[in-house]
Design a protein around this nucleic acid. Sequence first.
DNA 1: CTGGATCCTCTGCGATACTG
DNA 2: CAGTATCGCAGAGGATCCAG
Lengths: 121, 121
Amino acid sequence: MMNKEDIATKKNEKKYQQANECPITIFMEKIGGKWKPVIIWLLILNKVMRFNELDKSIDGISQKMLSQQLKDLEQLGILNRKSYPVIPPKVEYSLTPKGQSLEPILDAMKTWANDNVLYSK
Amino acid sequence: MMNKEDIATKKNEKKYQQANECPITIFMEKIGGKWKPVIIWLLILNKVMRFNELDKSIDGISQKMLSQQLKDLEQLGILNRKSYPVIPPKVEYSLTPKGQSLEPILDAMKTWANDNVLYSK
DNA sequence: CTGGATCCTCTGCGATACTG
DNA sequence: CAGTATCGCAGAGGATCCAG
């Protein structure tokens, strides 16, 4: 929140661009984190994947994190969850158009990381 | 004797693309977090900024976090820190070419966030 | 096979105070 | 002005077991 002095000086012309509610920050909040980009990227490459296939494809992820992240992404409207009522259970995940629209961005991130040889810390 | 492609295809009998050491993950490790994208974006817009100007431009950041993130970004070769030996102290931050090359990516993220109206949670 | 439920660790981040 | 130094928390993420 703003205090009184801030409000009082608010009309002073700002010399510099502000960054409040920056859309980039919003983007990072939604798509960021340790696993979400990888999940999306795998679904871009493979179109449709089952829970277990994602699990095996992502090195080091736990089942808890995977299901949690999948739920988040589903709520964001980025991926579809299709469950078949069979035994054993079968669930397929795929991207929505909204999710697919992330491809160029993720691809640019990939290229940048490769080009700039971000050495393992 | 086997050539490299043979070995590669032998090993890739997996049906699905793997995600180990995904460059996207590396990207997120380096550029991700709550403040780094905003700092970079401000420096793209304003070219050169002083510590205090960044502080005032980024709503809610603490001095501790700001100096920490700036240090990280400097180590990554993304920004330059130029210190003038005067009193009171004066330090200017600006992007390196490597940092400037992030502009299209951040811009794409911004556009995506706007287009997809990621409602405040 | 696809998760949910617990419990635990670790660290990113925040609040505040202090300094050359 | 441009930072450090401390303290502390909440939440991200990990390990393991259990269930439909």
